[in-house]
């Protein structure tokens, strides 16, 4: 998430970064599939996918990818 702030456009009112929590541990090879978002494994067995999301359309695109992989979705949180 180091480069997060550099890619977020400033001045927009919409949250520009999100975190998606999924059940199960996802391997790092999916980073490219998720357009370079960071993938973090939690100790409780969940996975966090987080990073900049350009707009609402991109956010729905992200959720669609989650759906298409059949990953159990637990939560979606905006990052400030």
């Amino acid at each position: 998430m180091a480069d997060k702030n550099t890619t977020i456009r400033s001045g927009s009112k919409q949250p520009t970064a999100y975190q998606v929590r999924l059940r199960g541990h996802l391997s790092a090879q999916w980073a490219t599939y998720f357009d370079g978002l960071s993938i973090t494994l939690e100790n409780d067995g969940d996975t966090l996918i987080s990073g900049p999301v350009a707009d609402q359309a991109a956010l729905y695109g992200l959720l669609r990818k989650v759906r298409d992989l059949g990953l159990p979705l637990i939560a979606l949180t905006p990052l400030e």
């Binding site: 541990h25 391997s27 990953l71």
Partner: peptide, 8 residues
């Protein structure tokens, strides 16, 4: 025994 995502 693994926590990993089944697909992976």
């Amino acid at each position: 025994g693994s926590h990993r995502f089944i697909l992976d």
